[in-house]
Amino acid sequence: MRYEGLFNYQCCYQCGVTLQPEEIAQQYCAPCQISEPYFDETYCLDRYTGILQSPLHEFKYQKHIAYGHALSSAWNMLISSQLEHIDSSYLLPVPLSIQNLAQRGFNQSWEIAKRIKCGRHIQKSPYILKRHHYSEHQAGSNLEDRHLSIKGMFYVEAKYIEQIQDKTVIIFDDVMTSGATLNEIARILKDNGVYRVINWVLLRAARPIERVQHV
């Protein structure tokens, strides 16, 4: 059984959502058993409703960079030791589009990811995975809309495609909500020859209501 987070949660091996009692024996949530995501496993530091939500908002929306450093430190203290032996070649942040990056001034996922501890064999890079500009926000969208809106939004920079062939890649994100973004990234990576995709997520939202209703 995998226990993760700032507190002990029994989590789905694949998507990191908190398991229901009837799912614990299988170690996978019912939605992942019914419709397997493209990514292979997920590690989360804490739940989105936990004590790290406020520091993340201060960092992400108020641009208080010190909170980003604190979040990296929390990751390093609480979860990095259990991840140091993961066999992976690359650690990539979920990218922002060029327009959104210019507007915000930084990519919050990369600012955290570049400071977290990982095996020396893992190369960190914000350049391999790219995102097309998308003017609307996903917040408040239902699960089906999220999957549709994110379709085709990501691509691999052409000069790196050969380097990622048959490799395991870690994707780092600050928040995993429905999983639509990370699932689309995993699809694109595997379409470009990546062997395995592992998610490292700072905060994991509760199980999407829409997803439960469709199973």
Rank of each mutant, 00 (worst) to 15 (best):
L52G: 02
Y43L: 00
R120T: 13
N107Q: 01
N76G: 13
K60F: 01
N76W: 07
E36F: 12
H69F: 03
H64Y: 04
M77C: 13
N76A: 13
L91Q: 06
D46S: 10
I112H: 11
S73V: 06
Q99T: 12
H121D: 10
C118R: 12
L71C: 00
F59D: 02
Y67G: 00
C44H: 00
E111W: 06
H69S: 09
F59W: 09
L101P: 03
L56R: 02
K60C: 00
G68C: 08
Y43T: 01
S97A: 06
K63I: 02
R120F: 13
P95H: 08
A70R: 11
Y90R: 03
L83S: 06
K114M: 15
Y61E: 02
N100D: 14
H69D: 04
T49Y: 13
K117V: 13
Q99N: 11
A113L: 08
I34V: 11
Y48G: 05
Y48E: 06
G50E: 12
I86Q: 10
W110Q: 12
H121M: 06
Q99P: 07
A66L: 11
I79F: 03
E84D: 14
Q103H: 06
H64C: 01
Q103G: 06
D40A: 02
S73L: 11
S80W: 08
L92V: 00
T42I: 03
A74L: 10
R115F: 12
S72R: 09
F106K: 01
R47Q: 09
Y90W: 10
S88F: 05
E58Q: 14
R104N: 03
G119T: 08
S72G: 14
L71Q: 04
E84R: 15
S81I: 07
I112Q: 05
W110R: 09
Q108N: 09
H121A: 03
P95G: 04
Y90L: 03
H57D: 01
R47I: 13
R47A: 04
H69C: 00
R115L: 14
I98K: 15
Q33N: 08
F106T: 02
A74M: 11
D40N: 07
H57P: 00
A102H: 08
A70Y: 11
W110H: 06
E58P: 00
R104S: 03
Y43P: 01
S97W: 00
A70P: 13
S89P: 01
L92R: 03
